Computed example of a mutant assay.
Amino acid sequence: MTMEKTLWQQVQLVRQKSPLVHNITNYVVMNNTANALLAAGASPIMAHAHSEIKEMVNIAHSLVINIGTLDEYWAESMFIAAETANTIHKPWVLDPVGAGATSFRDQILHQLLQFHPTVIRGNASEIIALSKTNKTITKGVDSTAESNDAVDAAQMLVNQYNTIVCISGETDIILSKNQSFHIRNGHPLMTKVTGLGCSASALTGAFIGTIEDKVSGTAAAMSLLGIAGELAVRESKGPGSLQVNLIDKLYNITEEEFTSHLKIERS
Rank of each mutant, 00 (worst) to 15 (best):
G122P: 11
I128F: 02
I128S: 01
A129R: 00
A129M: 03
L130G: 02
K132P: 00
K132M: 06
T133C: 11
T136M: 12
I137Q: 13
I137R: 10
T138R: 15
G140Y: 10
G140H: 09
S143H: 01
T144N: 12
A145G: 01
S147L: 01
D149W: 05
A150P: 03
M156F: 12
M156R: 12
L157V: 03
L157N: 00
L157S: 00
V158P: 02
N159Y: 09
Q160R: 13
V165F: 00
V165M: 01
C166Y: 02
C166M: 10
C166H: 02
I167D: 00
S168T: 15
S168W: 03
G169N: 06
E170H: 13
E170V: 14
T171L: 06
D172T: 15
D172W: 06
D172A: 08
I174P: 01
L175S: 09
K177N: 11
K177Y: 05
K177A: 14
H182T: 11
N185I: 13
H187N: 15
P188T: 12
P188S: 12
M190V: 07
T191D: 04
V193T: 05
V193C: 06
G195V: 02
C198D: 13
C198A: 13
C198N: 11
C198L: 08
A202C: 09
A202T: 08
L203N: 05
T204C: 14
G205L: 08
F207Q: 05
G209H: 12
G209C: 11
T210C: 09
T210W: 06
T210K: 09
I211H: 04
I211L: 10
E212I: 14
D213Q: 13
K214W: 03
K214Q: 14
S216A: 13
S216E: 13
G217C: 11
T218I: 07
M222V: 14
L224D: 00
I227K: 01
A228E: 05
E230A: 08
L231G: 05
A232L: 06
V233N: 02
V233M: 11
R234N: 12
E235H: 14
E235F: 11
P239D: 11
L242I: 13
Q243V: 03
Q243R: 14
N245A: 11
N245M: 11
L246T: 13
L250H: 07
Y251M: 08
Y251R: 09
N252S: 15
E257C: 08
E257A: 09
F258P: 03
H261T: 15
H261L: 04
K263M: 10
K263Q: 15
I264T: 10
E265V: 09
R266T: 14
R266S: 15
